[in-house]
Amino acid sequence: MQLIQLKPEQSKDEITDYITKLFTELSGPDRVPDEAAFAHMFEQWSGDLRHWVYKLMEGDEVVGFFTLAESFSFFADGRYGIINEVWVEPKFRSQGAGRTILGHIKEFARMKGWKRLDVTAPAEEKWLRTYAFYQQNGFKLTGKKLKFLL
Rank of each mutant, 00 (worst) to 15 (best):
Ser73Asp: 03
Gly47Pro: 00
Trp127Cys: 08
Lys126Met: 09
Lys12Leu: 04
Met1Val: 05
Ala36Gln: 08
His40Cys: 07
Tyr80Lys: 01
Asp60Ser: 12
Lys21Thr: 01
Gly143Arg: 02
Lys140Ala: 08
Val53Met: 10
Trp45Tyr: 14
Phe133Ser: 08
Leu3Ile: 07
Trp52Ser: 10
Ile101Arg: 13
Glu61Asn: 13
Glu9Ile: 00
Thr100Leu: 14
Glu25Cys: 06
His51Gly: 10
Glu14Ser: 08
Ile19Val: 05
Ser11Glu: 07
His51Glu: 14
Tyr54Thr: 00
Gly78Cys: 03
Gln135Tyr: 02
Ser11Arg: 02
Ser27Lys: 15
Tyr54Gln: 00
Gln135Ser: 03
Lys21Gly: 01
Gly113Glu: 12
Leu56Asp: 05
Arg31Gln: 14
Lys126Trp: 05
Val86Met: 15
Pro29Cys: 06
Lys145Trp: 02
Glu25Arg: 03
Ala123Lys: 10
Glu35Gly: 04
Gln135Val: 09
Glu124His: 04
Trp87Phe: 14
Asp34Trp: 08
Glu107Trp: 10
Leu128Pro: 02
Leu26Asp: 10
Gly59His: 12
Phe23Gln: 09
Trp87Lys: 00
Ala109Glu: 06
Glu9Lys: 00
Gly138Lys: 06
Asp60Phe: 01
Gly59Arg: 13
Pro90Thr: 11
Ser94Gly: 04
Leu150Pro: 15
Thr20Asp: 00
Lys126Pro: 04
Trp45Gln: 01
Ala109Trp: 04
Thr16Gly: 01
Thr100Phe: 13
Ala97Ser: 15
Gly59Lys: 13
Met111Leu: 11
Leu141Ser: 03
Ile105Trp: 06
